[in-house]
Every structure is written in structure tokens, then in C-alpha cells.
Write a protein that binds this DNA or RNA. Structure first.
Length: 302
DNA sequence: GGCCAGGGGATTA
DNA sequence: TAATCCCATGGC
């Protein structure tokens, strides 16, 4: 099997990257590697950590694929060590969250796929979001190939979903989100996918991109910020969901979404979105530990 | 601005 | 088994 091996990668951890809620089409294998699909590219990623920077092994990937796609997708060109230092210097509290998810990287994902995926994410559990998306791809995507005996499907195109009616999506069990998906697909198809793509350009401000993506049905402020952060490189976006409300209340005593957003903008600055990912991973890790082991000290104190 | 329905399943009580 | 919750939005 063709594979690429890259040495000396720091600030990188597959569990942190794929379990921080930014991507829904990657799955952990028993050996700790992750298998998934991006566009039409199917890959297995393995990482051996080491003091001087670990080794990343990408299977089913050519050198050309790596340089032309995966390097950028995995955001390997960015110095997360420097960002973490900057965040920790600005705020003493976030250090704990950074420590928990020290290997997080923000993937540079497809804009259309991210738009639809986060419409489906609303008021939903991550395991079920993944099921919804897989069902959608399986039913309406194209067969992209196979890896380790598993068949992978592409994310369906805007024109494909634009032709559907809610009853066509019944098997995907999207619930009330089905009508948002169709409405958004129709608007993307009508506007032209290029219009969405241009929102990722560096000279397009987060405010302008926010205004455009919130014009789609089913996209409010939370979903819009996720799209901007996970697919358009707007790192100052700070999506506020129920988990963020919880962690910002626990760590800083903040209550409302506005309070949290204002504080984030003021405190974390242009890397608010990256701070948000450390915080999200941190609060979910605590929550999972407590439900797994309800007699820990930090839980008994309540 | 606050309230509540929308679907459905995962998680918790 | 029942109740609650979930990376929210839109309409009233």
C-alpha cells in the first residue's frame, strides 16, 4: 500500500484532532489510527509520538496527494506551539484546557460539506450526527473507493440534494433538519457553489462570511461560526454551544452567549476559534470522566 | 426578548 | 422504562 511518512510533527494528536467535534467522517480504529474520507480521498492516519516531534504515517496516500492536499487539510504548516504560548500568555485559565487537548489542529475542510454537516449538528449528539451524515453519503453520494474492506462514499453534491424532497431523506433520519438541508442545497445551487467558496478567501472578513452563511435556512450564529472556523479559516470565530456555556461558566463565571462572545473576543483575540477547540475538548473530557467514574473527587464535591 | 415545537436517538435517572 | 439531553433555529 502506498504511504507517506512525515517526521518531526509537534502539537499533533489524532484523538484530539478527530474527537473535538470538528469533523464527522473519521473513525478510530482499534490500533489507534483514524480512517476517513475528504473529498474523494480516502486515508488512514497513524501517529507515533516522540519527544522531538512524532511521525505521521498516511496510508493510501501518495507524495503528490500529501503535498497537494493532506498537508493543507491537516493544517501542518501552522505553528500551534506558538499559538498555544500566545493564548496562555493572554489568559492564565486557558492553560488547563490547552494541556488537555494539546494536539488539536483545526482541519481545513470542504465548505459545502461543512455547511450541511453543521446544519445537521444542531441540537444533536455527535454519534448521531455521524450516523446522519454517513446515511446521507451512502444514499446520495458516489462510491469513492474502498480501504481495509470498508466502502467510502463522497459527500453528495449541492445539485443532488437540491432535487430532493423531505420524504426522500426519510431513511437518513435527519428529523426536522431535512427541510433546512434541502432549502440550503437549493440556495447553494442557485447562488453557485463558487459564491460559497469565495467566502474562504483571506480578504473576505469573518463578518461578511457570517452574513452570507446565515442567509441559508437552518444556519444561525452557532452553526455559522462553526462553518467559518472549520472550513473558511476564520480563526477569530468563537462558536458558543451548550458545552461552551458550561465551560465558560465553570472557568470564568460567564452566563450569557453575549458575555461569552465578548469575553472571547477580548481575551483570546484572533485565535479565539482555536481557544474554543481546546475548551470544547477539555469540558467534554471532564464530563466523560465523571460519567465513567462518578466517585472522583471533583464530582463528589458538588 | 422569551418561549416553544421540530425528530430522533443516545444517555442518564 | 422514563426522562432528559443534545456543538440551535425559526416562528410566534
Amino acid at each position: 500500500m502506498r504511504q507517506v511518512s512525515i517526521e518531526g510533527i509537534r502539537d499533533f494528536d489524532l484523538d484530539h484532532i478527530f474527537d473535538c467535534g470538528q469533523a464527522f467522517r473519521w473513525n478510530r480504529r482499534p490500533d489507534g489510527s483514524y480512517a476517513g474520507i475528504a473529498g474523494r480521498r480516502i486515508a488512514n492516519l497513524r501517529f507515533d509520538p516522540c519527544q522531538q516531534g512524532g511521525r505521521l504515517i498516511l496510508s493510501n496516500v501518495t507524495d503528490e496527494d500529501f503535498n497537494g492536499f493532506w498537508k493543507d487539510y491537516l493544517d501542518l504548516g501552522r505553528d500551534y506551539g506558538a499559538i498555544k504560548k500566545e493564548l496562555a500568555a493572554k489568559d492564565p485559565v486557558i492553560g488547563r484546557a490547552i494541556g488537555a487537548g494539546q494536539g488539536i489542529r483545526l482541519l481545513r475542510q470542504d465548505k459545502w460539506e461543512t455547511l450541511i454537516s453543521f446544519i445537521l449538528s444542531q441540537n444533536n449528539h455527535i454519534p448521531r450526527i455521524k450516523k446522519c451524515i454517513e446515511a446521507l453519503c451512502c444514499q446520495f453520494g458516489e462510491k469513492a473507493g474502498q480501504l481495509d474492506g470498508e466502502v467510502y462514499y463522497t459527500f453528495p453534491a449541492p445539485e443532488t440534494l437540491a432535487c430532493l424532497e423531505p420524504e426522500d431523506l426519510a431513511e437518513c433520519r435527519l428529523g426536522y433538519r431535512a427541510k433546512y438541508l434541502i432549502g440550503t442545497a437549493r440556495k447553494v445551487a442557485a447562488d453557485g457553489l463558487e459564491r460559497l467558496e469565495t467566502m474562504g478567501a483571506p480578504d473576505v472578513s469573518a463578518a461578511e462570511a457570517f452574513e452570507y452563511v446565515t442567509s441559508f435556512p437552518g444556519v444561525g450564529p452557532k452553526v455559522a461560526n462553526c462553518i467559518l472556523l472549520f472550513s473558511m479559516g476564520k480563526y477569530d470565530c468563537f462558536p458558543v454551544d451548550v458545552w461552551m456555556k458550561k465551560v465558560m461558566n465553570d472557568l470564568y463565571g460567564l452566563e450569557s452567549v453575549k458575555e461569552i462572545s465578548d469575553f472571547a473576543g477580548r481575551t483570546y483575540g484572533s485565535y479565539g476559534g482555536i481557544a474554543q477547540q481546546y475548551l470544547f475538548y477539555y469540558v467534554r473530557q471532564i464530563s466523560r470522566r465523571q460519567s465513567a467514574d462518578p466517585l472522583t473527587l471533583e464530582n463528589r464535591r458538588k
